[in-house]
Computed example of a mutant assay.
Amino acid sequence: MSGANQTREVVRGYHEARFRGDVATAAALVGDGFSFRSPLMSSDDATGHLAGITGFVQVVTGVDLISELYGESEATLVYDVHTATPVGTQRTAEHFRLVDGRIAAIMLIFDATPWQPMRQLMG
């Protein structure tokens, strides 16, 4: 399997597992030394990042994939996340870096402004 095809398999597998709340499958695709960065939070280990998936997917009502770009050891997905929150639909870009066929880093890019009032209410 070529590098870009393997990257696609890993990243799409993670993306699909995460949005169906399948933390075990998502975790199996994440490698050692994992880091996650977004406008609202960051984590330097897979455990911290994966712990938030279950709660987040409870408010997700759908995901529409807009674009997928794959390389040998990186990928970028652009998608709309539809939520049952006042935010509604959130346009998101997500960049993945892979090392040895597993996800080593994720950078999530979105406008965090609509999430601020809810974040303040949740403490």
Rank of each mutant, 00 (worst) to 15 (best):
G101F: 06
I106G: 07
A84L: 04
E94P: 14
G62A: 04
T61Y: 06
L69K: 08
D100R: 12
G62Q: 00
G71Y: 02
P86Q: 02
G101N: 06
R102S: 15
V81Y: 01
V60N: 10
A84N: 12
I106S: 05
T76C: 14
L65D: 13
R91Q: 10
I106R: 00
I103T: 11
S67Q: 14
T92Q: 04
R102L: 14
V78R: 06
G88W: 09
M107W: 12
L98V: 03
T85F: 14
V87L: 07
D80A: 12
D80R: 04
A93K: 00
V63F: 11
E74T: 09
V99K: 13
L98A: 06
V63P: 14
H82F: 09
V81Q: 09
T76R: 07
T85Q: 09
S67H: 13
Y70Q: 06
I66A: 13
S67F: 07
V63S: 06
V87R: 04
P86H: 01
L77E: 03
A75T: 02
R91M: 02
T85G: 09
E72G: 11
R102F: 11
H82A: 10
F96V: 03
A105I: 08
T61C: 01
V63T: 07
H95D: 11
R91D: 06
T83M: 03
M107V: 15
V63C: 08
E74K: 07
L98D: 00
Q90D: 12
A105G: 14
A75S: 07
A84F: 06
Y79R: 00
E74S: 15
H82Y: 09
S73G: 13
G101L: 08
T89L: 05
A84I: 00
T61I: 04
M107Q: 14
V99Y: 09
S73H: 12
V99A: 15
H82S: 10
I66E: 08
I106P: 13
S73F: 04
Q90A: 03
E94T: 06
T92S: 13
A93G: 13
E72Q: 11
D80M: 02
S67Y: 12
T85D: 07
Q90C: 05
V99P: 11
D64N: 13
P86I: 01
R97H: 15
R97I: 15
L77I: 04
A93E: 02
I66D: 11
D80T: 07
H95W: 15
I66M: 06
I66V: 14
G71A: 10
A75R: 01
